[in-house]
């Protein structure tokens, strides 16, 4: 079974996103900021990371940049999931290593369609 790490400082958003991803057939772990997410990656590298932008301790942008430098870090699919919904932010996330970008609010259909694009769902 594919694994996903959901990184968001909002517990509610983590729960909602995790439920959607679980319903799509993934095992899901959660982290509340980029630093904790990087720590989690030392134990196991997931197939997919859904990451918020604005978080305390370490934001999503720095997390993505750090992740891509890790061994095996360039194989993980990274999807930003954030309220930042303007073109400069999207370009910045892609430059930092994001594969896809979801603008909040989102629903299960948006997540599902993005994972199909990324080849993570049939």
């Amino acid at each position: 079974m594919k694994r996903c790490l959901v990184v968001d400082d909002s517990r509610v958003i983590r729960r909602v996103a995790s439920k959607i991803i679980q319903d799509l057939g993934f095992d899901v772990d959660e982290a509340e900021n980029g630093r904790k997410a990087l720590n989690a990656l030392t134990i196991r590298m997931p197939d997919l990371i859904l990451v918020d932008w604005d978080m305390p301790v370490m934001d999503g942008l720095e997390f993505a940049q750090q992740l891509r430098k890790l061994p095996g870090g360039n194989k993980v699919v990274v999807v930003f999931c954030t309220t930042e919904n303007d073109i400069p932010h999207i370009r910045q996330a892609l430059d930092a290593g994001a594969d896809e970008y979801i603008m909040k609010p989102f629903d299960s259909e948006i997540v599902r369609s993005k994972l199909i694009l990324l080849g993570l769902l049939g």
Binding site: I87, I90, E100, M103, D107, I110, S113, L117
Partner: peptide, 20 residues
Amino acid sequence: SQFDVQRGLPVRTLLQYFTK
């Protein structure tokens, strides 16, 4: 809408063919 363009549209295609 923002909702519409996220249903199936790759984000790079969004940037390539749409303006906000």
